[in-house]
């Protein structure tokens, strides 16, 4: 069975007829071909698939696309300015070497951006606690914490 889905992705309206069992991450990757959002587990454990749905960071492998019908979705591809200038959080990850292989990175960045407005001037421990849903195998997290701190400061 398929259904018609309409939503806004990175500011643009999209619509498609997809099987009802389609998850949001499948829709983003396979139908819209926005492959910056990654699948590390498909069971909501690793956070590689994190996107924003109506401003909230969600694991897109853990949500049916039907649940996002009519929503405003932002993926990693929507974060940088139209001229290619990186968002302050992206720039902070580059500046502080918050990524190595880059696979967890889009999810990390999307999770990190959501902290803006949620926690004021977070400590390292608070940032670490907030990133609990995102696994990185490469960096040991230290530079991610530094990046997030700097990114949040640059966003204000």
């Amino acid at each position: 069975m398929s259904m018609n889905i309409t939503m806004k992705v990175n500011g643009k309206s999209v619509s498609a007829a997809v099987p009802v069992s389609t998850t949001l991450v499948e829709f983003i990757r396979e139908h819209l071909r926005l492959t910056g959002t990654h699948v590390g587990c498909n069971t909501s454990q690793c956070g590689a698939c994190t996107v924003h749905v109506n401003g909230r960071a969600v694991k897109s492998c853990n949500m049916l696309v039907a649940q996002a019908h009519g929503a405003d979705v932002m993926t990693i591809e929507g974060l940088a300015a139209a001229n290619g200038d990186m968002h302050p959080m992206q720039a902070a990850f580059k500046e502080h070497h918050g990524l190595q292989c880059g696979f967890c990175t889009p999810g990390m960045v999307m999770s990190a951006c959501e902290l803006k407005g949620k926690v004021m001037n977070p400590s390292d421990e608070e940032i670490r606690a907030c990133l609990d849903g995102n696994i990185c195998r490469c960096t040991g997290y230290q530079n991610i914490v530094t990046s997030v701190k700097a990114g949040l400061a640059a966003m204000s």
């Binding site: 492959t35 990654h38 990186m86 580059k94 696979f103 889009p106 960045v109």
Partner: peptide, 16 residues
């Protein structure tokens, strides 16, 4: 030196 490869990874343009 900050990494040349980072821009593509950070903007979702990596190709795995």
């Amino acid at each position: 030196v900050t990494r040349k490869e980072d821009h593509r990874f950070l903007t979702g343009n990596g190709q795995y």
